[in-house]
Amino acid sequence: MTHEQPALALRGLAKRFDGKVAVAGVDLDVPAGSFYGLLGPNGAGKTTTLSMAVGLLRPDAGGAWVLGHDVWADPVRAKQLLGVMPDGVRLFDRLNGAELLAYHGLLRGMDPAVVDQRAAELLDVLALGDAGRTLVVDYSAGMKKKIGLACALLHGPRLLVLDEPFEAVDPVSAALIRDILHRYVVGGGTVVFSSHVMEVVERLCSHVAILADGTIKRVGTLTEVRGERSLEDVFVEVVGGRTATGEELAWLSR
């Protein structure tokens, strides 16, 4: 294992659903210690790609490696190093916040005393302590994102894979999440997250990949991809599609 081992390596990942290609061969190297943004419009295949990368969805072709461990051949080692927050997936939401964290911690084989201590800290920092014994099912969307992040962080993974972590999160919580992720990366961790919000990506990321129609269109460090322009301009150019209306919809202004 060399020193420059990528935190996450994807090779030729492909997936089709009912004959429709969702991901068409994705190669990606996420350097250890990077803050990696996976950008793409809705339906680009971000969720599908990340699900295959963490072992939630079996790819039709290709493979994924976490710090050199094959996710599909050696899942136990790979999954120990991984923290995941999937999108569009329920939590075990008939538990309250503390119970959910305890569950995730013990499931990862952590010491109960450590679980207790970390869970209390996380609930406190993420301002979820006030929710007390409210079940997660009754949390707001933003609170669900936060508890999901806490579950992914609890066992101190080396690589954090987050699908749309800033969706439906209010500005205060978003700032909080940014701060936590920033500290995590400074402390030697690696973050990969998907988003379609340019500002967040521009503000946080060291590396960016733009995904559209199931293939990587641009990849590199933020400055390489952005060049002289704004990230939004690059994104719109790569993805295509119309950004203004013409003659239609006249009935909107009555």
Partner: peptide, 20 residues
Amino acid sequence: ASSGPAKQRGGPVGGAVTQL
């Protein structure tokens, strides 16, 4: 929207593991 029992009775809140 809510399909579970809304809230639970209060009571002594132990550590996370104890609650589970």
